[in-house]
Amino acid sequence: MQCTEAQPLFTDFADNTLSREELHALADHLLGCPTCALEWREFQQTLNLVHSLETQAPPADLLPGIHAKLAHRGIFDRAWALVESLNFSLSIPAAAAIFTIAMLAGFLLKTSPLEQPTIFPSRSARLQQGEVLTPRRLPIAQNAMFAVSHNGGQPGGDLVPLTRTALATQLVPENDAPHLLSPDMHVLIEHIDHDSQVVLFREMLDQNWQIHRITTNLFLIHFPQAELGNFHELLGRHPATANRS
């Protein structure tokens, strides 16, 4: 037997639970190895010391203290005990599923058209003013974009409403971003002749609205959402221009 094999047997040796072969092998090794013999003596002395430790009597007020703690259960403890009494358990997948459903429900409620504030003109009024609305998306979110055909108040039948897009933010230079009021409107105007552009855009520039030319006949107007009423009023004041578009 090697020294490294001897020490792992010390506890079984002390418990007298070694097999006959192990016992003989260990005894032979201890007789011939002074180092392991010393280790074994120290092991025995250690056990004697540990086993000589006396247990301490518990304090007399241990049991009354338990009853005092039981009597002073807080509201939280009572609630927790109630939950525990329901024997309610939840697996991790079930908890994840509930969390996902809750998040989804929250998202749907947030985007629901119900109970939205009516700070804007009615849909019919806005349609009469020539605005093509994104369906049931009020209030308009930041950087929302709409296509407007400036044709004198008639809805542009051939224009498809543009949903929210990154196009507007790409068109606005980054260094201008801090000057924009938020939330902002982005309105596309197309089918407008040169004379109309001059008249209409001059007034828009007077109001510090930003005008971006996308193509020769397509413009992006950027203005604060609070000035949407001014935009409609402006369109209404230039019907002749609109009729020519």
């Binding site: 020490q7 792992p8 506890t11 079984d12 280790e39 250690t46 540990v50």
Partner: peptide, 13 residues
């Protein structure tokens, strides 16, 4: 247990 007792022995050496 054996490892723990050996460790204890070394601490009390």
């Amino acid at each position: 247990l054996n490892r723990a007792r050996l460790a204890l022995k070394n601490r009390l050496k």
